[in-house]
Amino acid sequence: MGEKMGDEVYSDLMRELKEGKYVFTGELEPEKAGDVNEPIEMARELVGLVVACNVTDNPQSFAYVNSMAASYLIQKETGMECVYQLRCSDRNRMALLSDVLGAGALGLKNILALAGDHVSLGDTPDAKPVFDLDSTTLIAMIRKMVDEGKDLGGNEIHNPPKLHVGGAAAPGAAHLKAEVAKVKRKINVGVEYLQTQVVYYTDVLDKFFNELGKVDVPILVGIFPARTFGQANFFHENVAGVDVPPDYLEAMRKTKEIKDKEKRKEEVDRVNIEFFTGFLEHLKGTPAAGCHMMAVGYPRIIAPLKKVME
């Protein structure tokens, strides 16, 4: 305690960002199951390829295995460092506070603080949406807990959690100026890194960086190489601020026509590598500190895409 904000380094992700390394992160999605075997398998394949993996928290408001439990188990079983995603949709400030303490106790080192999708978008639409805090106030609360060892009420925390807090940014937001102002607000309250929502268009990304200007916080740009046409199309139709290019969608749609499973996989990989090579080449010339590869259930694509950045 007492150190200047941001002096301490607790995670490999933060260490690499501070060292100025070009950072790659992945994404794992716990499912509606009584175990986390599948994300653990995926994590095993990603060890050594990415420095850390985000573990999603009820994505699109579909209720899945608790992200803290999944993050802990993945980290324990595979050694993959996890970015524990934590959304405000389902928990009041008291539950959030106690979850952050729990995460610290379990040895989690990174939290991605999110507002979260409205519960009505998912598979439990009658739930009462909470949003007692929002992403900014959650970031501020976590910084206060870590840096000052105090909770929201100013009560002292014995042995405060040692972890880093990140936030999200949406380059494709409908109102870019408002989005950028919000991102700056997160920076002002102490967010330590940013991971962007998925971007497909280089001009969308350039406009975002231009509008944001120079900031001291490292930004990882999100890309989403889809494993199937259905995945890509789901993003296109359901995720706000994400516009999947029609050419890419069409190329992915065509892969469905290939009957041989292995050949179809090869074609999907080819489409992704072709599309994202151009995007990643462009990324080299932007202020991005790295790339967040949201290739859920598709670990084999990470290595060839990383190669582009070498």
Partner: peptide, 9 residues
């Protein structure tokens, strides 16, 4: 049953 909060969206 739990209340249907979706009606208060």
């Amino acid at each position: 049953d739990p209340h249907e909060w979706s009606k208060a969206k």
